[in-house]
């Protein structure tokens, strides 16, 4: 086995410099709940590991522009304990808290969930529905990229060589709006989503749906932002007819695989049901948030 180097710098500039100087496979280490599993199984053999947990901006949650900036390496448990964040974006927080057991929650981060690029990653649909934007640092400086544009396929991202996700920004939640995330798993804890559905919707003063984002997880190579499903809600009341249209649009957008967790047909059906239920929760939240 080749020698592996471990570094835990105190700033993002140092991370970028370390990655730029490295040859071979380098990996960022956040909570390690994907990376160490992949290393133990011999699936990845990095020459350099750069731990970002000693960097303040990657490990803190701060209020910003009416929304929140969440360090890419902040763990799920800390996200769940942040009362203001939970109040503004309960769906995002729920999704982050669904990742693994308490042991996993102590370590698992949004940056890791996103960059590991599993089609079933729980926090990703909720972040996309919320319109979250990543701050990325790399050899050419910093850039801002919507979370929706990071994963390009299973295990693949649009990050360039030597780039690192520093933090994820959630915008201010609009008035009369609410978000929700639901996933379906065959047991009550500790499993990977068969389907995930995230919805973020807003109501106008008359209670009509004025904006919506609908995102499905685990039914395609990456999380799907389904505009047809959002259009099914926008412009009218979120009533049974709208939910019926949402259900149909969600099913139509699915491109799932068959595997041991569920057949493609089953996943397609469940995506409609979950989208509908998540919309119900988001609607309740939007109504109580005026």
């Amino acid at each position: 086995m080749n020698a592996m180097r471990y570094e835990a710098p105190g700033s993002i500039d140092e991370v970028v410099a370390l990655l730029a100087a490295a040859d071979g496979d380098s990996r960022i280490l956040a909570g390690g709940t994907d990376l160490l599993v992949q290393m133990q199984s011999g699936f990845v053999k990095p020459g350099l590991i750069v731990d970002v947990k000693k960097i303040a901006e990657a490990t803190t949650i701060t209020a910003e522009d009416g929304g929140f900036r969440i360090g890419a390496a902040v763990c799920g448990a800390e996200i769940g304990e942040h009362a203001d964040l939970k109040e503004a974006w309960p769906g995002v927080v729920e999704a982050a808290e669904l990742i693994g057991s308490v042991q996993i929650q102590a370590r698992a981060s949004l940056g890791g969930n996103l960059c590991n690029a599993s089609p079933a990653a729980d926090s990703v649909p909720a972040l996309i529905a919320a319109g979250a934007v990543c701050s990325i640092a790399g050899p050419k400086g910093r850039r801002e990229v919507p979370v929706a544009d990071i994963a390009t396929g299973p295990g693949e991202t649009s990050l360039g060589t030597g780039e690192v996700v520093v933090s994820i920004h959630l915008p201010a939640q609009s008035p009369r709006s609410g978000d929700a995330y639901l996933r379906f798993i065959p047991r009550t804890e500790m499993d990977i989503a068969v389907v995930g559905a995230a919805i973020n919707l807003s109501l106008d003063e008359n209670g009509q749906c004025s904006a919506a984002r609908v995102v499905l997880g685990a039914v395609a190579p990456t999380a799907l932002l389904v505009t047809e499903a959002a259009d099914a809600l926008i412009g009218g009341p979120v009533d049974d007819a709208a939910l019926e249209r949402l259900d149909a649009a969600a099913r139509a957008a699915c491109r799932p695989i068959d595997d041991k967790r569920g057949t493609a047909d089953y996943r397609t059906k469940v995506s409609g049901v979950l989208a509908r239920r998540a919309a119900g929760i988001a609607l309740e939240r939007a109504r109580s948030n005026s």
Binding site: Y6, A8, G32, Q40, C75, V102, Q103, I104, A106, R107
Partner: peptide, 24 residues
């Protein structure tokens, strides 16, 4: 990370020692 037999408390939170590096 599935079985918890390696559980330790790191800075007040219970975590899997099998999914942390010693250097951490």
């Amino acid at each position: 990370g599935d079985c918890g037999a390696c559980s330790v408390i790191m800075d007040g939170r219970v975590a899997c020692a099998c999914l942390a590096l010693g250097v951490e």
